[in-house]
Design a protein around this nucleic acid. Structure first.
Lengths: 124, 124, 124, 124
DNA sequence: GTGGTCTAGACCACG
DNA sequence: GTGGTCTAGACCACA
């Protein structure tokens, strides 16, 4: 489900956070779906529960999930995602695109990728 | 030339690295142009030369510049950029795009941004 | 009457408590009015009676309602409200006001809000 | 400087956070001023550094301070404070005001308090 | 020396 | 059983 790379420069909790976010984005988790409990995920990945908790806290701050103490964490509807996260994403997108274009990519071929991503999204 | 933001969460050497890379990408530095020496840049930015050196090393590893012993560092042609950096960029682009689309952006409007970036590139 | 939000970080009993208190403050419940029984409210909201009971206990301690054994709970006159609750509220008010002013709000514009709140109160 | 109350329902890190925020608001810390290091504050208050760190993280997310790894944390200008925090504050203010008015306070006397707070702010 | 991360283990509130 | 908090102690990257 989520793969960890201890040689990665990114801290573990960010890898967990990004992995979970990806599950939400790809539709593997629909809004309202319950995420694994902090403890169960910790034992699955063989890391400390505090580290998982931190990933969950971070995702909650971004608006990708919400937590009910004593109940668990649940995927949030995409409308809940933070404005801050949205603009951060926009910035990442533009910077990467600008550099790819400098490297020789054309807007046309990148656009084709976008359309492909959009199609895949619809069929999911 | 490069502005440091001590309030940025990124470490200084990453800010220097990203700043220099940006100069290359935007065309402020053309292939073959000489970059400032490590020492001069260190005194300009009032930071430790080791920090600058680290940024240069990192950029050289990515292929954005090359160093000639006793001569200095020079902006590399775009064809020298690492395959690793290219695929990393590609990954960042796709992930960001997928998430933006999930958040409601359309491929059409993102494509418009790409075309704008491409135009700006040409005119520079 | 009272809406529960399971995505709220506040525990359920606090949401019930705050919701009931709000009914009293807004005048939806006038002093002397009978509140729903613990059991009926529990079944209406589909939650555990213990949770409702806890909210009632808390409100009774603050002085917003009183309970007559065998009769039920009733909204109390505003003069019954605890000194402790009053000073707590005063503290919250001052702290929030001081911070809003620090952030750039003017006493004049905040005062306008107060007058508006007072007006609404009269017409209810 | 900051007083902790272990009998308080609020967790320690929130007490630390609120205390530090108060120092910023009252002007005891001006924008750019360095806050105590995580370790020194932890030993002063006789609590775990992780708990202090959490308070700092929270304040940084709200925009009251910024952190430079390896350097320390510094008070931010008030313009950096989050929109989210601002609206949260506004909500707290209105709720408290509405309840105080129900309890018999008049908009006029509350306004006098606001003016007093504004004056004190100016003289600081 | 500073903040950032991680672990192991503990206790509590909630429902 | 769940998440929330806290402690004690450790190692690392940064400048």
């Amino acid at each position: 489900m989520i793969s960890l790379n201890y040689r990665d420069a990114r801290p573990i909790y960010e890898q967990v956070r990004d992995g979970l976010r990806r599950l939400v984005i790809t539709g593997a988790l629909s809004p309202g779906d319950k995420l694994p409990s902090v403890r169960s995920m910790a034992s699955t990945l063989a890391i400390n529960p505090n580290t998982i908790q931190r990933a969950y806290d971070s995702l909650e701050a971004e608006g990708y999930l919400y937590t009910v103490a004593g109940k668990g964490s649940f995927a949030a509807p995409r409308s809940d995602v933070n404005e801050r996260r949205r603009s951060e994403l926009q910035g990442v997108f533009e910077q990467a695109a600008a550099e790819l274009i400098w490297l020789g990519a054309t807007a046309a071929e990148l656009s084709r990728r976008l359309t492909a991503l959009e199609e895949r999204r619809k069929t999911t």
